[in-house]
Amino acid sequence: MGDYAEYMILGYALMGAVLGGMVARLVWRWRALRRELARIEQIEAEERGENAP
């Protein structure tokens, strides 16, 4: 490890944290929305079943 290695590690760690956070947020929001959509579709199917002649 040469001069200022601790600042280099800090810089790369910050980059990794922000980039990782961006990816994690995309994944988390995608999963949450898929769950929400599945729930809406389930309610829709139940409503249709109840209203069927």
Binding site: L26, R29, W30, L33, L37, I40, E41
Partner: peptide, 29 residues
């Protein structure tokens, strides 16, 4: 790559909003 994924996420978010609105107004599907 991230922009492309973000666009798909936003499209999904808008679809969910649309479906919720349809559910509230009783216009399923």
């Amino acid at each position: 790559a991230l922009l492309w994924h973000r666009v798909r996420l936003e499209n999904l978010a808008r679809l969910v909003e649309q479906r919720k609105l349809q559910a509230l107004t009783g216009h399923w599907g």
